[in-house]
């Protein structure tokens, strides 16, 4: 296997992410019940089912088209804040990927960075606000470190997944500053952020594709 993403591998990633979110659906909803509105699991499940259908019914021609199809499916089917956030993330990745048929370690890193920038811009959240940014920001940094040394992809993605998980765990003691959890103020402390939890699954399932 070449050390790069192509449309079949991206599809495998998306399917893996859907399965992981399906499995964690109740956990995500339980986390969201504690500090949000109990719908993160079911919303993501619905959106990812639609995204998987979209890319398997009509396989996209290139990586950019793949990310755009996924982004639009999520925007159109998830709702809440997660729809625009995950949707913007994938749409921006698609802009950078363009018509590329494969994404090697450097270009995929640029996609991730663009996705992160889009996420931050749409959600106006910073590190430490107890959001999905707290998982994605360290993940992209960890990926970049390995990528700077030349990879391989599996090492970069594994490092990213580990950093995302640490970031996710780090949200527990935080006081939420964005999203519905911020209404709770200090009462949001002690709960793991559901968005950071699903974001970690995104990186963990990416690493599994190359494992």
């Amino acid at each position: 296997m070449a050390d790069a993403w192509d449309v079949p591998l991206l599809t495998q990633w998306l399917t893996g992410f859907r399965d992981a979110v399906d499995q964690a659906g109740e956990e995500l909803t339980a986390l969201d019940s504690a500090i949000g509105d109990a719908d993160h699991g079911s919303n993501m499940q619905r959106g990812l089912a639609a995204a998987v259908s979209a890319v398997t019914d009509a396989p996209p021609a290139d990586c950019g088209a793949f990310f755009k199809t996924v982004g639009m499916s999520l925007v159109s089917n998830v709702g809440g804040a997660s729809g625009p956030l995950y949707g913007t993330l994938f749409l921006r990745m698609g802009t950078v990927a363009g018509t590329a048929e494969t994404l090697a370690i450097q270009l995929f890193g640029e996609c991730l960075q663009a996705g992160l920038d889009g996420l931050v811009q749409r959600g106006k959240a910073q590190a430490g606000d107890k959001t999905m940014v707290d998982a994605m920001l360290p993940a992209v940094r960890a990926y970049d470190e390995v990528a700077a040394d030349g990879g391989p992809m599996v090492s970069a993605l594994t490092a990213a997944a580990q950093a995302a998980a640490q970031g996710r765990d780090g949200t527990t003691p935080m006081e939420a500053k964005k999203g519905r959890a911020s209404y709770l103020g200090e009462r949001s402390v002690g709960h793991q952020d559901p968005g950071a939890t699903s974001m970690t699954l995104l990186f963990e399932t990416a690493a599994k594709v190359f494992a």
Partner: peptide, 11 residues
Amino acid sequence: AGEVFTSPVPD
């Protein structure tokens, strides 16, 4: 109308 307690989508 969105899903229960969930915003409608841009479409």
